[in-house]
């Protein structure tokens, strides 16, 4: 008995996020003059490129049922090392980028190793990572280090024109590459599917013969890579390194992932959903800027509210799903054809 429904129930959260984004953008367009424009939409990409990159890594970690609290500090450490190497040691920009990315991967690998080897909760290990990386920032420098490197200046001020008078920044290109890579990995590679399996039922994944241990370690390395890259992109905005950069950003990343329909319990989620999570997060900020009188902290209140609503919504969807299933399968048991 084949019934291919048009909308898979798995996709409902994704749809809701998309609709919510369109609604919010629509409301802004109706309320504020000048809100509705291609450029304003592209600005969502431009302003949040680093968050998109970071959230892609976070999405994988959360789908696996884990969490990575170190990403905000890793971003800061990445900005510090970048600016220090560029300005104090005057290294070649390409070398700097490679070294910073390698550092992110290495720290991530180490955390992943601890999590797997000693079977520690990711929450604790990455919390330690959060403090460790933040502390290292101050070892590099207590003060802000400004970046005057030519390549960085170009990246910061570069504009790439697309469709008419609209433009995007080089950072956006990086973010989009990471996004596409993330979508590809999650859908079409063994690594990606193993991440989903681990999030669904780790014990089963082991019994099915999947490389669970290796995948778990690589996950945190990937997240470390993403947050280090996010740090580099972040310096394209600020043209400086500062030890307090990105504090609390791990929570922003988690929030966008959750709003994007990824279950904190693991097993369900999508990169595309996370992109829309970031869009919604960005739109709230823009709405508040356009509104003019509200304090920017209202962003937090709105995000908090949304995260809450989405969690409850998913839970309701889930329990309705199981109820439906019960009805459905009892009917199915009779109907399932046994040609035999």
């Amino acid at each position: 008995m084949k019934t291919k429904s048009i909308i898979n129930s798995r996709d409902i959260p994704m749809l809701v996020v998309m609709i919510l984004f369109v609604l919010m953008f629509g409301v802004g367009s109706v309320m504020f003059r000048g809100f509705f424009s291609m450029q304003n939409f592209l600005n969502l990409f431009i302003d949040n490129a680093y968050l998109i990159i970071m959230a892609v890594g976070m999405t994988f970690v959360i789908i696996s049922g884990g969490i990575d609290l170190s990403v905000g500090s890793m971003l800061a450490l990445s900005t510090m090392v970048t600016s220090s190497l560029l300005e104090k040691s005057h290294w070649n920009p390409v070398c700097v980028i490679l070294i910073v990315l390698a550092m992110g991967v290495a720290l991530g690998l180490f955390m992943g190793y601890l999590i797997r080897k000693f079977d520690l909760p990711p929450f604790i290990v990455t919390l330690a990572g959060l403090y460790f990386a933040r502390g290292l920032c101050y070892v590099v420098s207590v003060d802000t280090i400004a970046i005057n490197d030519g390549f960085w200046q170009t990246m910061a001020h570069g504009q790439i024109n697309i469709i008419g008078n609209n433009f995007i920044s080089p950072s956006v290109i990086i973010a989009i590459v990471v996004l596409i890579a993330g979508i590809f990995i999650s859908r079409s590679t063994k690594f990606g599917r193993t991440v989903f399996a681990i999030g669904g039922n780790e014990q089963s994944a082991v019994l099915m013969g999947l490389p669970v241990a290796r995948t778990k370690v690589l996950l945190y390395a990937f997240s470390g890579f993403c947050s280090a890259l996010a740090g580099i992109v972040f310096t394209f905005y600020t043209l400086s390194g500062y030890a307090l950069d990105g504090s609390g950003m791990e929570m922003d990343a988690i929030a966008t992932v959750v709003i994007g329909g990824t279950l904190l319990t693991g097993g369900v989620g999508s990169i595309l959903g996370t992109l829309f999570g970031v869009f919604i997060y960005g739109t709230i900020q823009v709405l508040i800027v356009f509104q003019g009188t509200l304090n920017s902290w209202w962003t937090r209140i709105a995000v908090g509210f949304l995260v809450c609503v989405f969690c409850v919504f998913q839970r309701i969807l889930e329990s309705r799903g199981t109820k439906e299933k019960r009805k459905d399968t009892s009917a199915k048991a009779e109907k399932t054809p046994v040609k035999g």
Binding site: F184, K190, R193, T194, A197, G200, N201, M208, L210
Partner: peptide, 25 residues
């Protein structure tokens, strides 16, 4: 049953030994 409820039926049968084409599943 030691399977992953969050994956599709097909994936539960093939995960770990998925048919690949051009480097992707």
């Amino acid at each position: 049953v030691n399977l992953c409820l969050n994956l599709s039926v097909a994936e539960n049968i093939f995960i770990g030994k998925e048919p690949m084409k051009f480097g992707k599943i």
